[in-house]
């Protein structure tokens, strides 16, 4: 009986040690593995109508604007993208995602111009190993 008690005690504390060391790694391995990057600035062509000496004129100028790749977000087919945010779970800060619907305007071959919803400093999820939802915790792979 005493021996059994000692064995159970040892097993209990040994498993607590193992869990202390490994729990976070196991937890992270089970999270959606994502890659996240900031959006780039791309060239967009803007057609500008103006009057010069009373005569309507058209000019095309090129400007760099915040851009989202078409394969990541397409206003016709996809409904939202996920950006990295800080979430609070069980008393600590963790990395999570927030669902945003970007507002887009112009487009070029590969990109849509982003006019709202995502800012330059936001990290946007490009790939994920699992389907994401709003407020989900994620693990960011080095990219």
């Amino acid at each position: 009986m005493r021996v059994l008690n000692i064995i159970i005690t040892l097993i209990f504390f040994a498993s607590m040690v193992v869990l202390t060391v490994t729990a976070r790694d196991i937890h992270n391995a089970l999270l959606p593995q994502v890659t996240a990057r900031r959006l780039t600035q791309e060239d967009f062509e803007f057609v500008i109508d103006f009057e010069y000496d009373g005569i309507p004129q058209t000019a095309v100028i090129t400007q760099k604007r915040l851009a989202i790749p078409k394969e990541l977000y397409n206003p016709d087919t996809s409904d939202a993208v996920f950006v990295v945010t800080t979430i609070y779970i069980n008393g600590e800060e963790r990395v999570g995602v927030r669902r945003v619907v970007p507002q887009t305007n112009e487009k070029n071959e590969g990109f849509y111009e982003v006019t709202g919803g995502i800012s330059r400093s936001d990290f946007v999820i490009f790939t994920s190993s699992k389907v994401l939802e709003d407020g989900a915790e994620v693990f960011i792979l080095a990219s």
């Binding site: 607590m16 869990l19 202390t20 729990a23 976070r24 196991i26 937890h27 089970l30 779970i89 069980n90 008393g91 600590e92």
Partner: peptide, 13 residues
């Protein structure tokens, strides 16, 4: 608790 509440471990020890 064990795989999602890491505050528990330092507190336990």
């Amino acid at each position: 608790l064990l795989f999602d509440c890491f505050v528990f471990y330092p507190v336990f020890w």
